[in-house]
Structure formats: structure tokens, C-alpha cells
Amino acid sequence: MREFRYAAATDPAAAVALLAGEPSGAFLGGGTNLVDLMKLGVATPDVLVDVRTLTSREVTDAADGGLRIGAGVPNADLAADRRVRERYPVLAQALLAAASGQLRNRATTAGNLLQRTRCGYFTDVTRPCNKRSPGSGCGALRGLHRNHAVLGQTLDGPGTCVATQPSDMAVAMVALDAVVQVLGPDGARSIPIGELHRLPGDDASRDTTLRHGELVTAVDLPPMDMPSRYRKVRDRASFAFALVSVAAALRVEDGVVADVRLALGGVAHKPWRAAVAEGALRGRPATEESFAAAADAELAAATPLPGNGYKVPLARNVVVRTLLELTGGLA
């Protein structure tokens, strides 16, 4: 690990001001991702500004009936929050399906959103990786990519990257149309969560649209009145990242899909909002056939790699199954 200075600030504004003058500095949340990457030599900040206890650790009721989640709220506390469990089960389930009890106790909401990909070439500094070292190539493309992206990858050029975004929580938040509150050197702004994470495009090094020094202060959840759920498929029964996950919310009226939210995890460089499928479903009968047709429509754009083609039928099945479960059609 490279040497670094450790700085504590007194309030969020001071933290932002501190980091603004440190082009190679980073905010530190729970550290469960950043410290890991520093040990691997992947992250080499020269100063850490500790914001774990600086940003709010509270979940508060919002005026519109939604919730405001402080950036410092630990994943475990968020999953245990009664309001989240009752009104946003998809979020509680996503959090509970992630990492381990110990990690969830330490990890923060902001840190979770901004955790970096688990691609094994990214985390190994002796391998080529356009995300870590732009222009060095993408080791995963011809290497181990069984758990890499099938949608929205960049398959050639300097931006080549087939990595996935690993956060389960983010997938649920995308389905919930959350809004991320940010404080930067130029003031505060709100980012709809669907615009936070990005596809690799021609620059795989940037995971998100955040600018250097921007501090996530909170995540707002709009009110939610649809039943929702999260289903994660992984290699072992617990403590593993998603192969594919689905966050879904569904309202059926008179046998017809009145409203639906669908986001996929483990398939792309960002949580994948399945807008095509959502469009194909609204106003259609809430049946297995329409669910399958909608999933197929979404996945028609998939460009699987030699080693991860299974994710396409897997994602399809999980979408159908999760929607069916939300209709009560499957226990």
C-alpha cells in the first residue's frame, strides 16, 4: 500500500473543500472496498478524507412520503430499517443478499454505490486493464469473464471493457428511481441514480458521472406503493457476488400490468434499467408469456462473450420468475 495522509474533517463542506485541493485524494467511507483496493495497489490515494461518520447516519422521512438515506448509513442498518423493510422490500433484500454481516455493518450507503468492479484483471495490477490503466487493454475479454457483462460493453477500441457494476443495492435503487444528493466544490446537485453509473463508452476508467471531489451526502427514495422484490443468483448460497440479479416492482390491475420497474444486476457496467421490457409490459396482461416476451425484447440487445452466454437465458428466467412471484402466481 502506498503511503497516504489521513484527514478528518469537521463537516461535509469542509471535507469537500479539503479534497478539492487534493487531486489524488479520496473520500473514505467504511473502507471495505477502498482499503481492499489500496492493499492491492489498485487505488493509490495520497490523502484519505474520512467521511464515514461525517455524512448522516440517519434514515429520515421525506415530505413527499419517501425516505432520505444519509450517505453514512451502514448497509446493515438500512436493511434493518422498518420503513425500508415495509415499503421498499426490494432494497432490504438487495442489501441482505450482499456481502456478509460483518461487511454490511461497516459499509456505508455512499461507499456501496461507488464500489468498483470485481473484475479480476482490474484488481491485479500486473494485468492489462483499461479501467485501471487506460490503454493497456482488457484482460478479461480473452480471459476469465464468466461473470462479466452481456449488455452495453465496449468490445473494441481504447475503451474496451466488459466489467460489471457489483453493487446489489444500486440495482434496487435504480428500480426505485432514487436520487443521489451530491455536494461538490461548485455546490450541491441531484443526480437521478440512473444517470450516476455509466457504460464504459470510450473511457472505461470512469465508473460514474461524479466529478472529483464530489461528496455523496444522501440518497432519496421517492414514495413507493408497488410490491417489489429482489432476486439474486450466485455461485454459492451466500457471500458471493451476483451472476445475475433482478430488482422488480409490479402493479397489476384487472390482470393487466399497470406499472412496472425492472433493473438487472450482474449484466452490465451499470445497473441495467430494463426500459425496453418495462415498455413492452405496460398495459399487457400480467402473464408468463408477456413477461417472457418482455425479457426477450430487453435481452435482444445482449452481446455475450464466449464464456458468459448463459447469462442471457438466466437473466430471462429470473425476470420471468420474479415478475410471476410479484403477481402471486408463484410462491
Binding site: 473502507g31 460483518q102 455493518n105
Partner: peptide, 13 residues
């Protein structure tokens, strides 16, 4: 009182 992985906690924090 809360369980954590001490390998990912910096002592200074």
C-alpha cells in the same frame, strides 16, 4: 459491539 472485518478497518479510523 458490532461485528466487522478488522482487516479492512484502518487503525487510525
Amino acid at each position: 459491539g458490532r461485528r466487522v472485518n478488522s482487516c479492512l478497518v484502518l487503525a487510525v479510523t
